[in-house]
Design a protein around this nucleic acid. Sequence first.
DNA 1: TAGTACAACAAACGATCGCTTGTTAGGAGG
DNA 2: CCTCCTAACAAGCGATCGTTTGTTGTACTA
Lengths: 206, 206
Amino acid sequence: MTNRGTRTAEPEARRKTTARGGDSRRQDLLEAAARRFASRGYEGTSIRDIARDVGMLPGSIYYHFTSKEELLVAVHKEGVLQVMEAVRKAVSKAGDDPWDRLTAAAEAHLEALLGKNEFSPVVTPQFTRGFEDPLRSTLIAQRDEYEAFFVSLVNKLPLPSGTSRQLFRLALLGSLNWTLTWYRPGRKKPATLARQMIGLYRKPLE
Amino acid sequence: MTNRGTRTAEPEARRKTTARGGDSRRQDLLEAAARRFASRGYEGTSIRDIARDVGMLPGSIYYHFTSKEELLVAVHKEGVLQVMEAVRKAVSKAGDDPWDRLTAAAEAHLEALLGKNEFSPVVTPQFTRGFEDPLRSTLIAQRDEYEAFFVSLVNKLPLPSGTSRQLFRLALLGSLNWTLTWYRPGRKKPATLARQMIGLYRKPLE
DNA sequence: TAGTACAACAAACGATCGCTTGTTAGGAGG
DNA sequence: CCTCCTAACAAGCGATCGTTTGTTGTACTA
């Protein structure tokens, strides 16, 4: 529904001008773009779609972002930042036990991924597929910064020798991220899901 | 490179007419479309791209398919069929042990997913995201037929009571399918990867 | 050899795409 | 009061989109 019907942008949007700090409209654009990119994909989303969502004319977007591509990069960066912050906080609140710390990270990860956050779906590496290489590398670099977090958590795990830590991490992240394709809210809380998945791996390895 | 430079379609394509059974050109279209869809996405692929790849004018595609959407459905169906056939064959050649049968299925699954097959990337459920609902349901239905295979394999597994078979299957398929986002050919064979991943789950549970 | 079906070409349709340009309303600061 | 800056509007650019229509060369068939 949003505000499809209104032919001309309502003055309400206008009034916001310099009402607060300033980034308000830019943030609106980021969120609208994230929602669209997540549900319809980058190519499936037009500048006009996003403009309509925030109540603005298409051309006006180019005051805030120099190109559609720059908007994508900004959305991706914001998404990575939000998830990274959530995980960092959760881990810092956890105890010293390596498994507990990994579990806390997995819980925060899934909560961000499956929760209300509109940015997180854009953060998954699968989203990266299909972009040309200068852009693609930029996104992957942003994402790798986050994934490095899990590398260090897994490295501190007391695993039996012979277990590839890399394979373990990739398998675990695969299980977690894959929930995006089948999870339906309500059935089970994301944090519970995360704990159960860790359990699947933990039992045989500790 | 392909045949970008040739302005007019070379007569070579013409000669193929009724050379064999007949489906030859249609199959070419399916393969070209699959490659494009896999690398650039559905929205990122134009009818003109596909036409150029097979050496045909854009309008000519509509002799074989009534719409771009129908082409997508056909590509998806073909992909599911190919992977399903490979897995079915592998399992039938495996022994009676449930773990062996699951391992055989996982190996075939990954070989199809990461191998030369251009259809398989299109088959993953993540590809389904972003389509509207009549189309989306069609694709999911095709895909579910394949996934049912894994349901029955997991159900016959001797798992300790208390382990959710559904969660186990989703986690495993997640690990396997996620390889698409990070696997680079050459390092390790897909089948080896599949075995090692199963091993991650197997040890503690049997 | 005439007729028919096939598989493609050639050209264009209207719609939509990302983006550019020129303009304007309204606060902020001298 | 005047100026400047901000954040938008209004309009349209050329390119490309999926698709349609009419035509044509070729191969089978009677």
